[in-house]
Each structure stands twice: as C-alpha cells, then as structure tokens.
C-alpha cells in the first residue's frame, strides 16, 4: 500500500542536470514530450528513448524505483497494445482464433509504446529529481498562475499531514480487529475512514487559516525568486534545442511507420 514515511519522494539524482535551473528543465521536458508525441516514424522516438535512458542512467537514480515506474506504466498499456494489431484492419500477418493481426496495427502499437516510454523517461530524467518545492517554484517561474502554484504548495504540504492522519486512523481500525475484505462492511468502513479524513482535514485547514491570518496571510505565498539563469543553463537550453532539431530532422528524413 503506502511504504515510506514521505509520499512525495523525488528520485535521487546527483548529476549535472540537478544543477540546471528548474524552469529550464520543466520547459525542456515539456518541449521534448510534445515533439515526441507528434512524431510518426520510429527512428527519432527510438533515439529519444535511448538518450533519455542514458541521461537517467547518468543521474545515478534509484534503479529499482525508476524501473518499477516504467514497468508499471507499461503494464497499464499492455492490454491496449496487445489488442491493437487485431483491431486495426490492414495487411494480415497471422490469424489467431479467427482474428487477423495486421501490420498496421502492430506498427501503431509499437509507436504508442515508444512514445509512452519516451515521455516517461524524459520526465524521469529532467523532472524526476526535483523535490516538490522546487517543482512548485519552477512552475511559478514559467508563469503558471500564482493561485494555482499556491494551491500546489499547500497541497504538497498537506499530503504528508493527511497521510499520517490516515495511518493513525488505520491503526485505530486495526486495534478493533478490522481486516479489509471483499464485503459491504469493509467498503462502508473505508467510506467512514474517508469521511473522517475529510472532517479532520477540514478542521485542521480552518485552524491553519486562522493561524495564517494572524501572520498576515493575504492570498498567496511568497517565494524566494529563482536565481538568474547562468551560463550552464543557457548551454543546456541550446543543447536541448539542437537535440529537438536533430529529432525533427530525423522525423522528416525517415518514412512514417504508418
């Protein structure tokens, strides 16, 4: 269920990338993912997957956790990918139990798998190492509305509080010999648990509001402004732009898969 004490643990990373400005990393990840999703030949996608995997590798990440993240995502789309060759009509490769598998469907499945893996690897490589606070400041830096960022910052703080509240309530349930089973009693008990979390969360938020008002809260958080972009940030941005250019060139040069 929930393992560590803190839910939002960033992937460990101590590469050069972690010294790059969060705004640059966010924008680079966004640009790379948006370009990757619009590709229709496999070569640039394969290249992106490879490069992102290498960068992730150099970031010395928590290997088992990174791998688990990628595999979980692949597990989610596995059924859809398996079904695709059979649902797309086209040139038949083979017939299984009266269903025709087509090349077109297979290619489409390969493309989707490549895109999804490229996107998640880019995200892990560029954004995965950020902690939630840095992410919030990065979002602020790329002109996400202050209200949304404030909400974001409050939320990441409360998730931890709430999780502890949840664990306390679960201990109370276990003390009364509650075991989650497949019946209405269990579901109702989970419902009450959720309701109680909401009530306690609500009361706590009211207390926090009054405490903050005493400290002159007027609607948004004050962030220390991010440092000015340094030379290495500009180098990083140039590298990313060149890389995207190469990818687009590859996309133009290579024939579309479908």
């Amino acid at each position: 269920m929930i393992g560590a004490t803190n839910v939002l643990v960033p992937l460990r990373s101590n590469s050069v990338l972690s010294r790059i400005d969060p705004r640059c990393r966010l924008l680079a990840a966004l640009a790379l993912i948006v370009t990757a999703v619009s590709f229709s030949s496999w070569q640039p996608l394969a290249m992106l997957v490879l490069v992102a995997a290498i960068i992730t590798g150099f970031a010395k990440p928590d290997w088992s956790r990174t791998l688990k993240m990628v595999l979980t995502m692949d597990g989610f789309i596995f059924v859809m990918l398996i079904m695709l060759p059979f649902t797309v009509s086209g040139d038949v490769i083979f017939t299984l139990w009266g269903f025709d598998a087509s090349y077109q469907g297979l290619f489409q499945a390969v493309l989707i798998a490549l895109k999804a893996n490229a996107a998640i690897l880019v995200l892990i490589a560029l954004v995965g190492g950020m902690d939630a606070i840095l992410l919030g400041r990065g979002l602020q830096g790329i002109y996400v509305p202050a209200k949304l960022v404030t909400l974001f910052m409050f939320t990441i703080r409360y998730i931890d509080l709430l999780r502890r509240e949840y664990l306390r309530l679960r201990v109370a349930m276990r003390a009364r010999a509650f075991v989650a089973r497949n019946n209405r009693h269990s579901w109702r008990s989970f419902g009450y648990l959720l309701g109680m979390l909401l009530v306690r969360g609500h009361d706590r938020s009211e207390r926090i509001l009054w405490a903050m008002k005493c400290r002159a809260y007027h609607g948004h958080m004050h962030f220390g402004s991010l440092p000015r972009l340094s030379t290495q940030d500009y180098l990083f941005a140039t590298a990313v732009i060149l890389f995207i250019g190469t990818l687009i060139g590859l996309e133009v040069a290579c024939p579309a898969l479908i």
Binding site: L151, Y158, L162, R163, L198, R204
Partner: peptide, 26 residues
C-alpha cells in the same frame, strides 16, 4: 476559490490524493 478557502481546497485536494493511494479489495 477566495483567499479564505485556499487552505481548505488544498486540504481536500490532499485528501483526494491520499485516497488515490488507498487500495480497496474489489
């Protein structure tokens, strides 16, 4: 969301995030 509601909305948003980590047998 007005100023006063901010902590409350964030708290609810956190509740729903935590709820999405909660697995129920089905």
């Amino acid at each position: 969301i007005d100023i006063d509601a901010m902590p409350r909305v964030a708290m609810m948003s956190a509740v729903f995030f935590v709820a999405s980590l909660l697995h129920v047998p089905v």
